[in-house]
Structure formats: C-alpha cells, structure tokens
C-alpha cells in the first residue's frame, strides 16, 4: 500500500523533473522559435512552458509542505534505508525499469526490422524473443504464438481489411 511519505516523495520528484523540463522547454522556445507578427508561433509554446513551470512549482511546494508537516524523523528514515521495505521498493523499481527498457527497445527494434525485413519476417522472431524473455519455454506456445500472431495479423489486416503490410527493403517476401 502507498504511504503518504511515498506519495510525497513521488510528487516531489515529479514536480522537480517537470520544473526542469519546463525551464529547458522555455529556453529552447525562446531561443529557437521566432516571434512572428501579432500572436506569433512563439506565444503558445512559451506560455504553455511557463504555465507548466508554475504548476510544477506548486506540486513541489505542496509536497515539501506535506513532508514538513508529517515531520518524518530523519534518523529513522536513514536507519530504514536498508530495511526490507526499502529493499523491496528498490527491487520493484529496478524490475519496472528493466521491463520498460525491454518493451520500448523491442518496439523500436521491431520497427527497424519491419522496414528492413518486412512484416512477416520481422514479426515471428520478435514474438518468440519476447516470449523467451518472459521465460516461456514451451515449444508449442512459442511456435503457436509466433506463427499465429504473424499470420493472423497478415491475414486480417493485410488480406481482409486491405491495410498496408510493410514488404521490407532487404527481403521482400509478400
């Protein structure tokens, strides 16, 4: 279950990250986007950046205020740093980050493979690799899902709905 302390830390980190992001955004917009005439192209992104800056400052301020009010005893927090709860939280965070990187990298690599090898050749190995990463070792599931998803999508999207199926610049099977 989420504690108020955890929620405050999360809000503080979110607010601080968004504040930095909005400062970077405002600087880039101010430097690179010309003003134009009247309400020009710079106005909207600049105002939006400033509003995000203000809102993230409010989030940081509110979470700092909550933190002070709850008055977490600092020594206890430090002693708790290696406690089982913190360890579990760190493990969970590491797992989430690993999965996030795996999923996003798989999608990006799959896109590249689709362009070079075409939909059919790229999809089967992507499905099987993902299943292996998910610790699936049953041959029937690996082959069944790999072939099923590949040819199911090819049939439904490519043939029935007539959607475009990437052919591949290196290999073009279909």
């Amino acid at each position: 279950m989420e504690t108020p302390g955890h929620s405050n830390r999360r809000d503080l980190a979110t607010g601080a990250s968004l504040f930095v992001l909005s400062v970077v955004w405002v600087v880039i917009v101010y430097v690179t986007v010309p003003t134009g005439s009247g309400v020009g192209p710079r106005a909207f992104p600049l105002v939006l950046g400033l509003v995000l800056m203000a809102l993230s400052a409010i989030l940081v301020g509110a979470s700092l205020g909550n933190r002070r009010r709850e008055a977490e005893p600092v020594p206890a927090a430090r002693a708790d740093a290696n406690g089982p709860e913190r360890k579990a939280a760190r493990t969970a965070l590491r797992l989430r980050l690993q999965v996030l990187v795996t999923v996003c990298a798989t999608i990006a690599i799959y896109g590249y493979l689709m362009q070079k090898l075409g939909f059919v050749v790229a999809t089967f190995p992507t499905v099987v690799t993902l299943l292996l990463i998910l610790k699936e070792r049953r041959i029937l599931v690996l082959l069944g899902m790999g072939l099923g998803i590949t040819f199911g999508c090819w049939l439904v999207f490519g043939k029935v709905l007539g959607a475009y199926m990437p052919g591949g610049t290196w290999i073009s099977l279909f």
Binding site: V103, I107, Y110, M114, Q115, T126, I149, C153
Partner: peptide
C-alpha cells in the same frame, strides 16, 4: 505480446516510418 506487435505495426503503417515506431516507444 500480441499488443506489442500491434503497437509496432500500427505506428509504422501511419506514415511508413521507423521514426513513428521509435516515437511511440519513447
């Protein structure tokens, strides 16, 4: 796993661009 494939395929077919797939991932 099936949704991952549909994400990649869906993003790619919008403009036939790997950039869109990478943008979807990021």
């Amino acid at each position: 796993v099936g949704i991952v494939i549909m994400c990649g395929y869906g993003a790619f077919t919008i403009r036939n661009s790997v950039f869109d797939v990478v943008a979807a991932a990021v």
